[in-house]
Design a binder for these strands. Structure first.
Lengths: 204, 204
DNA sequence: GCATGACTAGACAGACCTGTACAGATAATC
DNA sequence: GATTATCTGTACAGGTCTGTCTAGTCATGC
């Protein structure tokens, strides 16, 4: 069976061996990198946790950097889009309500016993070299979140939606760092500041 | 010459060999750890940069962890107290003015070409293990800053000075992370939110 | 002059890291 | 059943990391 055939969707078995192997790698990398950061986790650990031999892992990803970049893509897919954005849109209808809802979502997140923190901020701060691919990717991941906030601001009629989104994201990131330092009420504090920002714009 | 004699200050030479050696270690560790984080920098690098032999370094600090903790103490001394707090108190007289001045100080910081970011946040996020000494120390360093903010809030007559200080610090940390991601105007955005917080308290 | 104590240079152990080599097992397709 | 591609287990190369050892240098105090 060739690799290309498995993605064709014209064969009977949806979970072919390759797909399931890669998925096992991705899932384990996600769990480990999101909890401990990228630099702290070795390839051997990902291999052991996933039950996939290291050689197979290197067949799927040519280097740890490639695996790290795949992790950040998955984090954006699972955390940013499928979780944060979905939850925000589910919880409120109006743009202002959705912006505020982000802090309600964070509140539940911060109170989870296994709260892991923000992988994008961690990845950004892990690498001081500005040209490092992982750092650049993390920066782009943060920009994706900001674009979502900017869109909400625009829909809410905020003038200077970009500046507003940057301020809103600053509060979000500040609350995440505070929560990482142990402040379980960081989301509530962030929401209060969000209310002040919305009041300034006259849309709450 | 014995070690104790050098710290007695009753001898003629103020910069004895031991003191200068330890100072060279501390200075190099400070430069390297503050720029690249603790985990990214090896003991050999500190040794090479300081011009102090590795064995001598291990005579002064029994482990890299001890060196890292000494770095965090020095960071608190040089960055928190001698720089941030001093500058804040120099630039303004009133509590509210001083709280806001923190963002003016940050503004100059963020615009430095060699802006290095916050060592306490970096150290906190580098270690996922909550019991790690470096992580606990970094958390304490952040608490020191918060105590300073709380004192200013108290002097300004803020009710709920602790909650206020936590919010203020969240904005400060959010602006630092934003600046680390490349937003040179992060301090100005933070100051705007500070103004909203002060206005809410009715002290600006 | 000589003992003492700080420092140096380099080698080294042992652990861990990324990435590779190789021989064999497994499973799907012809 | 033979072929083919994927995956496995283990071992290994070469690098880096923390921490130690040793032999020797240098300055100071007696």
């Amino acid at each position: 069976m060739k690799a290309m055939d498995m993605r064709d969707a014209k064969h009977s078995k949806p979970t072919s061996r390759l797909a399931s192997t890669r998925e096992r790698i991705d899932r384990s990398a996600y769990e480990l990198f999101s909890r401990h950061g990228i630099r702290s986790v070795g390839v051997d650990t990902v291999s052991a946790r996933s039950g996939v031999a290291k050689m197979t892992l290197y067949k799927h990803y040519p280097s740890k950097s490639a695996l790290a970049l795949a992790f950040l893509r998955r984090r954006e897919e699972l955390w940013t889009r499928s979780w944060l954005q979905q939850e925000v849109e589910r919880r409120a209808r109006t743009p202002a309500g959705r912006l505020l809802a982000a802090f309600d979502v964070f509140d539940q997140w911060f109170r989870r016993p296994n709260f892991e923190g923000c992988s994008f901020i961690k990845a950004l701060l892990e690498h001081s070299d500005k040209g490092h691919p992982v750092r650049k990717a993390a920066k782009a991941n943060l920009a994706t979140i900001r674009a979502f906030l900017r869109q909400l601001a625009k829909e809410g009629g905020v003038r200077g939606a970009d500046a507003f989104a940057r301020q809103w994201q600053m509060v979000m990131m500040g609350s995440i760092v505070a929560a990482s330092a142990g402040d379980k009420d960081a989301a509530r504090r962030g929401k209060e500041m969000g209310l002040l920002l919305l009041a300034r714009e006259g849309i709450a």
